[in-house]
Each structure stands twice: as C-alpha cells, then as structure tokens.
C-alpha cells in the first residue's frame, strides 16, 4: 500500500444546524486506481459516517455522482485521483440548491425533462399496429448520440446561461427533445418545438459549448441546441413569410 495521501476538502452543509456551507478536510490514502468516489467512500466508512452524497453504479452510467471537483463538474466515479493535485476540493453541483452536503435538489431538472415531452409521439395517421417498425442503421444514427444522456446534470452546472436564468430549459432537456425530433418514428416535433422556442434562454445561449465539453457521454447538447434554434428560425420564416409552404 502506498504511503502517499491526498487531502479532500469537502463541502458540508446540514440545513438543520448550519446557516451556511462550510468545508471539512479529510486525509485519504492515495491509490493509483482510485476515483474521487472511492475517496469519499473511504471517508464515509472510516473517517466520518455523517457525510452524505449520492452514488450507485461506479461505472459512469447511472448519473448519480455528478459533483464539482476542483471547480469542474465531473462524475466522481470517473474522476481519478491521479489526475488531480494532492489538494482536492469537492463541492455539490453548481447552480443547484444544496439539500445536504454533496446532495443537491434536482426538482427543477426533473420537471424540465418532463416538459419537453420526451417520448415518441407517432403521426396521427399512423395505423394502430402491434408490429415492429423498421428503422435503418442510418436513421438510427441520426439521433443515437442524443439517446446517450445519463441525466447527470454536469451540463447544467457548466452552463453560464442556466446560472443566470434558471427558467432556461437547459442543455440535457433540449438535447432530449432533439433526440425524439430526429427519430424517424416520431411526429411530435411541432409540439416540442413550441415548448422550446417559447422558453426563456434558448435564444440567449451563446454557444460557448461548455455543456458539450463537460458531457461524460459525448452527447453534444450544444450541437443539439444550435440545431433546434436553426429549426425554430426556419419554422418562423416559413410561417410568417411563406405561409403557403407547409412546414
């Protein structure tokens, strides 16, 4: 076992006793293969049983353990100690209210996911059938990337727009709407587009691309957002300047 240790400075906050968050420092053994989550588990098991945080799969797919590590939004289960200096600061995800320690309140995100109608809306004239629909690999490829979002919310923590304007639907929700819009089996784009275009913030997204940079699954929400904006603009022009053209 290695002698080396790292120091984790972890944000603590208990709404029942603390008027504001504070930091607590824990010395943790260093292991080449450990991720920040392993270090937190070490603290929980051996140093301080009162520390609270969310985690489950430890393989970057359940999306539970998003947090700020040295100021960057990351999945704690994929942030290796070896990539950080010996002083590591761990805080809850930025832009979300703190519920307790590293646990954030994510009601806003959950509501936004639901708002964009993230389910197949088949065409009205699609015959009722219990059969499998065809979809070519090329058609699948048009939206596959946007299905990979694990709802970890790192993109919300990275998004300057969401920080300023909490009404903004935000990167993951818009990318999810875009995922269904691009699915060859779906006919619900108009319904979703209305919700997105009417939402505050979409037009202010400055395409700095921070959301795509932090995405652990390379979903590229920034790309989705720009495509959605362009589609909305085209819709507007068609509707107002060329009303005789069908969308």
């Amino acid at each position: 076992m290695s002698e080396r240790r790292v120091s984790l400075e972890v944000l603590r906050y208990d709404p029942e006793t603390d008027s504001e968050p504070r930091f607590q420092r824990y010395p943790v053994p260093y292991h080449e293969e450990w991720v920040v989550l392993d270090a937190l588990n070490y603290i929980k098991d051996h140093l301080d049983t009162t520390l609270s945080y969310r985690w489950s799969c430890h393989m970057a797919v359940c999306g539970s353990c998003g947090m700020m590590v040295n100021g960057e939004p990351v999945l704690a289960c994929k942030a290796f100690l070896r990539d950080y200096p010996d002083e590591i600061r761990v805080e809850p995800l930025l832009h979300f209210p703190i519920e307790r320690d590293l646990v954030t309140v994510i009601d806003d995100f959950m509501a936004k996911l639901a708002r964009v109608k993230p389910y197949l809306i088949p065409a009205r004239d699609e015959p009722a059938s219990a059969a499998e629909r065809r979809q070519t690999p090329a058609e699948l490829k048009r939206f596959k990337q946007y299905t990979l979002c694990i709802n970890c919310m790192l993109c919300y923590a990275a998004c300057p727009e969401y920080g300023l304007m909490p009404e903004f639907l935000g990167p993951a929700a818009i990318a999810l709407a875009h995922r269904y819009n691009r699915d060859s089996r779906d006919a619900g784009r108009d319904e979703r587009q209305e919700i997105i275009a009417a939402n505050e913030g979409v037009w202010d997204c400055s395409f700095v691309g921070a959301c795509s940079e932090v995405c652990p699954k390379h979903v590229d929400p920034a790309g989705a957002l720009q495509q959605v904006k362009i589609a909305s603009t085209v819709d507007w022009y068609k509707e107002h300047l060329m009303p005789w053209v069908k969308k």
Partner: peptide
C-alpha cells in the same frame, strides 16, 4: 416490440429490422 414502439433505440440490421 412494445419497447420498440415506445422508441427504444434497438440496434438494427441493414434492412431496418
């Protein structure tokens, strides 16, 4: 098949099945 109809992105053969 029901999952397919709900939009599950199943991998496909070249003919779309």
């Amino acid at each position: 098949v029901q999952l397919e109809r709900w939009g599950c992105p199943w991998s496909r053969d070249p003919d779309g099945s």
